[in-house]
Every structure is written in structure tokens, then in C-alpha cells.
């Protein structure tokens, strides 16, 4: 059975025309429901953020590693959702992933900054000459 067989003819009766309008409205509603665009850009941003965090050594800092793991898991979920057409959920999931990855990157940098500060302060305490290595 094809759609034309289900739909009433435009040239039909007055009630047929009314039914036609209802079907069209239904299609519009269905179409709108699926009109959320695939969040490819947001997924790409989340992926880049996760990569940056990993490059910065987030995997080696326990607190950052946890955030990085969350970011990568949510990124995978976002991709899967996007493939399944759940674009809106995929968008939010990529947003969560992006923020986790950003936090992971920041924690890794914080760890580095704290270590550098501690080294510099230790040099001051011991009175050793020479600037600490960045």
C-alpha cells in the first residue's frame, strides 16, 4: 500500500479536503520534530577539546583523567545519538563532553602550574641559583 492510497484525493469532497489538511499538518509536525540539525560542529569541538586535554597530559593527572574519561565517553554517546538521529540529545551530550574536556585540560594545566610554583619556591628556599625550567 502506498501513501497515495492512504491520502484522500485533493479533488474529493469537502470532508476529504479537511482530512487532507490534517494529514499535511501532521507531516509538518513530524517534519519539525526531526528538523534539529546534526550537531556536527559541537561534536567536533568536543573532540578537539578532549584531544587537547589528552595532549596536555590530563590522562596522567588522576583528577583530570576522570574528567577526560567522562568527556570521551560522552563524546562517544553523542556520536552514537547523532547517528541514530537523536540530534538534540547528541547536541547536549557533546556540550557536556566539551565542558568535561575543558575542565580536564584546566586541571592538567593547574597541576603543571602548581608543580612549577613548588619548584621555584623550593629553589628560593635552598638558595640555588638558576631559573627554574618551564
Amino acid at each position: 500500500m502506498w501513501l497515495s492510497e492512504l491520502l484522500p484525493s485533493w479533488h474529493g469532497t469537502r470532508s476529504s479536503k479537511f482530512n487532507m489538511i490534517k494529514y499535511v499538518a501532521l507531516l509538518v509536525v513530524i517534519g519539525c520534530a526531526h528538523s534539529y540539525p546534526p550537531p556536527a560542529d559541537h561534536v567536533a569541538s568536543a573532540m578537539a577539546a578532549a584531544r587537547a586535554a589528552r595532549t596536555a597530559g590530563a590522562a596522567n593527572v588522576p583528577r583530570a583523567a576522570l574528567q577526560l574519561k567522562l568527556a570521551e565517553e560522552q563524546l562517544a554517546q553523542a556520536r552514537e545519538m547523532m547517528q541514530n538521529g537523536a540530534n538534540e540529545r547528541a547536541d547536549f551530550m557533546s556540550l557536556r563532553s566539551y565542558n568535561d574536556a575543558e575542565l580536564a585540560l584546566a586541571i592538567a594545566r593547574e597541576n603543571d602550574a602548581l608543580a612549577r610554583a613548588a619548584r621555584a619556591q623550593a629553589l628560593v628556599t635552598t638558595g640555588t641559583s638558576g631559573a627554574p625550567q618551564r
Binding site: R109, V124, P132
Partner: peptide, 30 residues
């Protein structure tokens, strides 16, 4: 996450300030 990020970034700035101060102190010592 945004709030936690603000905290971490503040910590980074603070650590960098401590590092800079220590380097300046070290330069003075040198």
C-alpha cells in the same frame, strides 16, 4: 563544570603568580 573551571583557572593564576614571585625572589637572591 563551568563553576569548577572557574575555580581551577583561579588556582592556575594563583600558582603562576607564586611562581613569578619566587622567580623574582630567586633573581634578587642571585
Amino acid at each position: 563544570r563551568k563553576a569548577e573551571l572557574a575555580e581551577v583557572q583561579a588556582s592556575i593564576v594563583d600558582a603562576e603568580a607564586r611562581e613569578t614571585a619566587a622567580q623574582q625572589q630567586l633573581q634578587q637572591q642571585n
